[in-house]
Design a protein around this nucleic acid. Structure first.
Lengths: 497, 497
DNA sequence: TTGTAGGCCTCGCGCCGACAA
DNA sequence: TTGTCGGCGCGAGGCCTACAA
């Protein structure tokens, strides 16, 4: 008997994943995370070359012969929600049309609706779990948290001795995956899980996003661990449709349609990043007022490099200064939202090449520095200033001994802060002057308020002609001085007026 | 205990195979096969665009706006013997410098030596075996023919109950592979074989070439099955240096330096072929008298598209005509040389676009058509005419009932052949006239001899001014009328004067 | 509740003897 | 002599229970 172990088993069923196929926007947002903000079509944004460059997997050397502004006003002409065929990473492709400065100051925010997602946000439920060592190990299955199983999967028949059912999950490409779901003191995905791990090349720290649509269809998305962004990624050589795990239509082929990969040996690096030349090309087109496309992979720690003009206007209304207290929402690996608190250490352009740039203008120190790694500089529109605090406990002072800080910021700023407990609050006069493009020239600026005596923390006025008014739009209490976890069904409401 | 099953095991040891590194010429020829003829540096050849096009993995559409001759005289400026990093296929890269026609007719064959290989040919021994189903099966090892083991491997100690030793074979890239060689009623390679099969992606019908150098170093080469030329090839995703089979230096990375691959899904197609644009580029340069490079993968059934001018001159001395008997040496999968016999069915340009082309000028019928598939047209310099035969048995007549032929050639040509048993024999007058570039115009030609009455087999004179002389350079007897097998240590001597 | 360890079973691989072409 | 089959043993994978954090 000849056993034909070789041969093209299931080969004919293979088909390329279409890398240009759009993903359902709601599914996309669920997988990307609720803090990811993609501007609506026809809204107006600022494009930041510096921010774009942070998404390249290689250093970006901008051409020195052309004058590149720190931000370029654009209209969002198109938005495509997509997913990388190999990594399952979701990304957005935006077509941006540069605007004249005169087009920015008028007619702002007259796009209908606040956020194209907010109206339909409730139709999708999601649950995110970061994979543990045991989940990845070949010896076992996937430990499914009780809440995940209860909210996502159909109910099991617990009268059975070993309740079990088949679960069908569709990935972002539309491929269906079958898992055996058993309940034995806890919920476990067994058969099918190992193939999924192998096929998606899941590693410790990666996250799985279970998404249930309104019609109870189940989807599965992947967020790669932050550590893998700069790391290598195995190029999958072969799917195993013969195991029956991957169901019809079994797209198994690999697309190289993106074409922005770099390799070391047989591993692909630069996952979720773009080519430096793409950034330069975009900037060149933008400078020349030509429409251009940008690709944006959402990733924690690298903010969007396209920001709604209204957001920036709001951020500019604040007189940012050293010692100011703020909070910022970050999404954890398991889709929970942490409100982290910190203090502004300095207000200074991040890159001397763009002395007037707002990009990562704020250098900050965190109350709990171990919760945020490698994020020392923030954009003004990323944070919310804290208006008041009633005691030293809320400032996170009790944590100081547990989380020792750098000597340079250990104590000096605290006395200064209490000298001006409310900080400088400013507003932007209602004028149609195109203030966004005004030069940020320190010598030309007017000194407003001195908050700190710390020599490393010079006061830096943002715009001439601002005055101080009380500010009342702090929305969340930072009670107890520790991070607040919000369930993933609650979205950040940073933009609410 | 945490078992780190994942991780980059042996990753740091990986290194790219240098696709530009030359292979030892003797090893190269042993792997390529003894019938492969690569011209010597500084020899003069004709380059055939038609032949080159046969090596493309896609149809070649030559530009219609330029006049492309059927052959371009060239000097061989450089020869590189190389091996494909992925498939282990050997190939030659030749730099050709186009010549004026006046440079061809004079000073022919005054290159020192006959063949740069012939002088050192005896220093390498080789043995070729085509892989059987059992060799490929995962269940077993490699059945090593007795002769292979005896001539290639060190002798075993047969006093042991289970004689065994480790065999080290170096592939064409310089990678060393270790095999366990045991003798149990026959020679078998066990441990290490399976990994080798997986890594080299060996399939049924592929051939292994064992080569022993003069210093007893062992090498291993691969010839892919003819069937795989147009088929898909798995892109190897991962070597397994951790098994210890692949020894230091363990180049494990995959090179994409050739860059001439085409893919369907995760499989590479066009193995051992080139891009159509490369052919067109070469032809364009050649037409403009610019030096150009060609890549040649030796393959059974696709003759070299660069042919020594002396070979063509010899071939042109024969007045090819229908009904002529010939023999041709072909190398089998296991490096044995078969002398096949056949009859010329017609002499007609293969492609109407090149009516004067010699390329595949001869349409032939084989005595044993099942031994040669898909080879109906041959180049005149590929075959040797048979000068005489003593009985009908030598014509292969007894085989006719066993191998039924098409009705169109079944009988009619036989009586005609016997009418002119010796066929027209011609010679080329010794003249320095540049006859190679003379137009091949049928209307202008002089009729010499009529050999056949078969209407499909019109007499076609090749060159004006030829006359018939006796020809005595038939070197091999086709005794018994069947194919003669010659051991692989014996090379074809077709070129001997 | 959920991460991790381990028992135990299955299956595929791989070595080698048996048999046959 | 050598291709193929099959027994047998080993080890990895995979399912599920036990235990602990």
């Amino acid at each position: 008997m000849v056993t034909s172990t070789k041969g093209d088993n299931g080969e004919s069923k293979k088909k390329k994943i279409d890398g240009n196929k759009d993903v359902d926007p709601q599914l996309w947002h669920a997988v990307a995370g609720t803090t990811v903000q993609i501007p609506q079509v026809n809204s107006k944004i600022f494009y930041f070359p510096q921010g774009h460059a942070e998404h390249a997997y290689e250093p970006v050397n901008f051409p020195a012969d052309i004058n590149i502004p720190s931000k370029i006003p654009c209209r969002v002409a198109a938005v495509h929600y997509r997913a990388d065929p190999r990594t399952d990473l979701v990304y957005a492709k935006l077509r941006l049309v540069p605007l004249q400065i005169s087009q920015v100051s008028i007619d702002e925010d007259n796009v209908a609706g606040v956020d194209d997602m907010s109206v339909t946000k409730n139709q999708y439920q999601s649950y995110t779990k970061t994979l543990s060592e045991s989940d990845i190990n070949k010896s076992g299955g996937f430990s499914c948290p009780k809440k995940c199983a209860e909210t996502m999967f159909p109910p099991l028949d617990y009268s059975d001795q070993l309740p079990s059912q088949d679960i069908y999950l569709m990935d972002v490409h539309g491929e269906m995956w079958k898992f055996r779901h058993v309940y034995a003191t806890r919920n476990i995905l067994t058969t099918g899980w190992s193939d999924f791990v192998t096929n998606k090349q899941l590693e410790l720290g990666d996250s799985l996003v279970f998404v249930k649509a309104a019609n109870s269809d189940l989807h599965i998305g992947i967020r790669r661990s932050k550590k893998r962004n700069d790391c290598r990624f195995n190029f999958p050589s072969k799917r195993k449709p013969e195991t029956g795990t991957l169901l019809q239509p079994p797209y198994g082929g690999l697309s190289s349609s993106l074409g922005n990969e770099r390799r070391i040996g047989d591993k692909v690096i630069g996952i979720g990043k773009v080519k430096a030349e793409d950034v330069i090309e975009a900037v060149k087109l933008g400078v020349n007022m030509q429409p251009f496309d940008v690709v944006y992979y959402p990733r924690v720690g690298t903010p969007e490099f396209f920001v709604k003009t209204s957001l920036i206007r709001t951020a500019l209304q604040i007189g940012w200064d050293c010692g100011m207290r703020f909070q910022m929402a970050i999404e954890t690996d398991s889709s929970k939202i942490n409100w982290l608190m910190g203090t502004i250490a300095s207000v200074e352009a991040a890159d001397p090449a763009w002395p007037d740039s707002l990009w990562r203008l704020l250098q900050v120190t965190w109350d709990n520095p171990d919760l945020v790694t490698n994020t020392k500089r923030l954009n003004p529109w990323q944070v919310e200033t804290l208006r008041y605090m009633s005691s030293s406990k809320e400032l996170g002072l009790p944590q100081l001994p547990t989380f020792p800080m750098d000597g340079q910021f250990s104590m000096p700023y605290l006395p200064n802060y209490f000298q001006t407990p409310k900080g400088p609050i400013m507003y932007l006069p209602e004028t149609s002057m195109p203030y966004f493009q005004q030069p940020f020239n320190r010598d030309d600026a007017t000194t407003l308020t001195t908050v700190s005596n710390n020599p490393a923390c010079r006061k830096v006025p943002l715009v001439r002609g601002w005055s101080v008014i009380p500010r009342t739009n702090a929305k969340k209490d930072a009670s107890e001085g520790e991070t607040v976890e919000i369930e993933n069904s609650v979205s950040s409401s940073k933009e609410a007026a």
